[in-house]
Structure formats: structure tokens, C-alpha cells
Amino acid sequence: MRHGAAMFLFTLLTLAACQREERDTRPQSSLGSGEQPMPVTTLEPGGQRPSASDNKAASFEANAFHLSEGKRLFSWFNCSGCHANGGGGMGPALMDQKWLYGSSIENIHATIRDGRPKGMPSFRDKIPDDQIWELAAFVRSLSGNAPSSAAPQRNDDMMPHPSENRMPDAATLGKSP
């Protein structure tokens, strides 16, 4: 009897451990939706307003599947052609703590969707909206802004830098809190 109870408990625990994060394997097909306006500055005359957040953001951030998809798409849509593997080239570096147009996932999503005037193209009509969110989540992981349990691990390709799940948070790198 006791043996049976232990067995039951063990099975329960095992099943609970099998609980996986949700995978939304069929992203929205529509292009360039999500029209939330995103300020690209923190300067608000008279004081800050509450930062806008998108209800989609939370479901993409810190999600291993979406991060891994973002990494694949980062090469697929030639992001890596300009930003290399985060160190930059034609475009700015993405693995440092410097952000021209905001560091939140909403900011990055808006940057990819709408483009920016000094050379960032607008991908509104090229990439489905959910895939833009996946890219934005992955971009944040390049500067250590994703939990190490969810960020991608080592590449199958030439290793350009430590894998994303080992990247330190660029904002606090080498600084005491």
C-alpha cells in the first residue's frame, strides 16, 4: 500500500516534470499587424508616462521555442548580413548595452517592423508579425536579456561568440549593481 502511494507520488512528479512550455508552431500569417505606437525615446515633457507594453510580448520573451525560431530567422531574413552574429557590421552591434531606439521587446519589434531612418529597412511587408516578435526576443538574448534556461545553446556552425544562454547581461557587464 505504502509502496503504491510512493509509486503514485513518483508518477505524479514525473508527469509534472513533463509539463513543457507552450509552443505556438503556427504563427500568424498576416504581415505587419500590431500597430501599437512605440516611443523611441524616454524623454517625455513633464515626466514619464507608463511604458506601453504589448500583450503579445510576454508570450514571446523567455520562451525557448520562440527564441530558437528567432535565431533561425535571424539568418533567414539576412539580419546577420548587417548585424553579423550580434557584433554588427553595416548595422550596429546588438550584443552591447547601447540601444538607439529602445531596448524593450516592443521597441525592437517596432524597429524591425517599421525600420529606422538611418538605414534599418522596414520589414513590415516581408515578415509575418509573430516572426518579428520571435526575432525581437532573440535580439534581446544577444545582450543577455533572456533567461539562460530558454536562450539558444551552442551553434552547429562556426562559433562566433559564446552561445546566447551564456551571454552576460550587457547592461550590467563588469559593473556592480
Binding site: 553579423a84 552574429n85 550580434g86 557584433g87 554588427g88 557590421g89 550596429p92 552591434a93 550584443m95 552591447d96 547601447k98 562556426m158 562559433m159 562566433p160 561568440h161 559564446p162
Partner: peptide
């Protein structure tokens, strides 16, 4: 371009 030298493939 203020690139990040931790990425070996930058530029």
C-alpha cells in the same frame, strides 16, 4: 561603427 569585438564575425 562602434562594433562589438566579442563577435568574431562582426564586419
Amino acid at each position: 561603427g562602434d562594433l562589438d569585438p566579442r563577435d568574431a564575425t562582426a564586419a
